[in-house]
Amino acid sequence: MFVRIGAFFVGLAFVGVTLFSLITGVIAYVTTPAEENVAETFHLHPRTFDVSSNGPFGTFDRRQLQRGFQVYKEVCAGCHSLNYVAFRDLAALGYDEAEVKAIASQWQIEVPDINPDTGEPSTRKPTPADRFPSPYANEVAARSANNNALPPDLSLIVEAREDGSDYIYSLLTGYRNPATFRNEKGQTLPADLRPGNGLHFNPYFHNLNIAMPPPITADGQVTYADGTKSTVDQMAKDVSAFLIWTAEPKLENRHRTGWAAMIFLSIATLLGYLAYRNVWRDQKAKPVAYTGTMKPENREKRDEASREAGLNT
């Protein structure tokens, strides 16, 4: 009883304060004119593109990953690090041991080391065991070289952005001319949303103006080793596919394990269900309907016939 009386007053307090909050909120909502977010109307949602690793049966297209790696190597690696990927991991792209070794030793950036004779900081050629070396020594160096913007590490970029690879693909192919771009309503970009010094207009970027200059600008920018025609669209797709791999190199294992688990568990669950029905078969109450000789009226007829025949029933 005391609990209920106490609860009533505590309840009144919480309900009262929330309703008071609600009323002030409603008043504020009604009296302040709705602010239209102009930047929002110029923002575009990422376009989707098909990549073989999509979907529960997805696997990597090794040739595409190799092309994507080539784009990374020739276009992105100048500014963007790939901290969580090692040269040895490239074996998963279909390169053999000698090729991996060659890629590592011919990489354009050396890895920091210590001179074994003098103890002075030095650099050496990467080996397959090394992770991809960063293009900049540290964040300050990276910012000073890029107009105070920091090029993010690309290893996990697909996992770290909404819409993942679709976003990367859209961003890479999404640079537009700010002077001619129109939103859905046909409006042109207002002056305060135009890119400032060192910024580039890209409607797929969250605040419309990105520090990264358009990285892939012309068809044939990269000459693919496998002879695929390197259009801007193709290069953007290939490097996005490559970044799916860098973000989750074990994606194929995950899909394979998943299907093995689905098949195993479906059988186990079916057996579990049958075992459950079997154990419960005597205990499940079921409405019963009798037929044939068990039907009550037939039984009565049978008993009557038996009596008439003088049989002991």
Binding site: G258, A268, T269, G272, A275
Partner: peptide, 25 residues
Amino acid sequence: HPYYTAKDGFALGVFLLVFFAVVSF
């Protein structure tokens, strides 16, 4: 046992199916 172990066993199978579907896909 065996009535509710069997019933929980079946439920566990269904639970694991959904769990592994999310973990894998």
